[in-house]
Simulated assay, not measured.
Amino acid sequence: MPLAATLFCLVVAISDGDTLTVRCGSPGAYEQVKVRVAAIDAPESRQAFGQKSRQNLARLCFKQRAALQWLDEDSYGRKVANVRCNGTDVAAAQVRAGLAWVYTHYAHDHPHLVPLQQQARASGSGLWSQKRPLAPWDYRRRHAR
């Protein structure tokens, strides 16, 4: 799949608040692809708001047609993409709801996300309702096996 091309696929599974599985292609020649939503990091499943984040992504995308713009591949072999479901920018929706953090390292390529995170934080939405929310990257570091 070429980078920066937009592909339309059916969302067939939701792993967590920033990862989904899509089925692309035509009948008889489908390909299932695991996709990481670009520029965000959702709470881990066992972390506070992890399940709510996953449920919100499912509400937005499960069994929907997603427009995917491939950007990269991550260290786990997942495709990293800008994802839109029903015309909704999934990264923006997750951040706006307080159900994902903006991945600071990639924020310069997605400048629209930072103000959404600031608004969610100011209003105490989602994970920002916690006294000291723990970023998923810090959670993974603390719970590494």
Rank of each mutant, 00 (worst) to 15 (best):
A42G: 02
E44D: 06
E44Q: 02
E44K: 00
E44G: 06
E44R: 05
S45V: 01
S45P: 02
R46C: 02
A48Y: 00
F49Q: 03
G50T: 00
G50D: 00
Q51D: 01
Q51G: 05
Q51W: 07
K52C: 03
K52Q: 06
S53D: 01
S53M: 01
R54M: 04
R54F: 04
Q55V: 07
N56T: 09
N56M: 06
N56E: 10
L57Y: 02
L57C: 00
L60Y: 01
L60K: 04
C61A: 05
C61W: 02
K63Q: 13
K63E: 10
K63T: 04
K63Y: 12
K63D: 11
Q64K: 07
R65P: 03
A67D: 09
A67G: 10
A67H: 08
L68D: 11
L68C: 01
L68K: 09
Q69V: 03
W70H: 09
W70Q: 12
D72T: 05
E73H: 11
D74T: 09
D74F: 00
S75L: 07
Y76Q: 10
Y76N: 09
Y76A: 10
Y76V: 03
G77N: 05
G77S: 08
G77K: 06
R78S: 03
K79S: 13
K79Y: 12
A81C: 07
V83A: 13
R84H: 13
R84P: 02
R84Y: 12
C85M: 04
C85R: 01
C85Y: 02
C85K: 05
N86L: 12
N86F: 04
N86T: 10
T88H: 09
D89A: 00
D89W: 05
A91P: 10
A92G: 12
A93I: 03
A93V: 04
A93L: 05
Q94A: 02
Q94Y: 04
Q94P: 03
R96C: 07
R96T: 15
G98T: 08
G98M: 06
A100Y: 02
V102N: 03
T104W: 14
T104L: 14
H105Q: 15
A107G: 12
A107F: 08
A107T: 11
H108Y: 13
D109S: 14
D109E: 15
H110Q: 14
H110S: 14
P111R: 15
P111K: 15
P111C: 14
P111H: 14
H112N: 13
H112K: 11
H112T: 11
L113T: 10
V114D: 09
L116M: 10
L116Q: 10
L116W: 09
Q117F: 05
Q117D: 04
Q118S: 12
Q118Y: 08
Q119F: 00
Q119A: 12
A120I: 08
A120T: 07
R121L: 07
R121E: 11
R121K: 14
R121H: 10
A122Y: 03
A122D: 07
S123F: 08
S123K: 13
S123A: 13
G124D: 04
S125R: 15
S125I: 07
L127Y: 06
L127S: 02
L127P: 01
W128Y: 05
W128T: 06
W128R: 01
S129R: 07
S129Q: 09
S129L: 00
S129G: 11
R132G: 02
R132W: 08
R132I: 09
R132E: 11
P133S: 01
L134I: 11
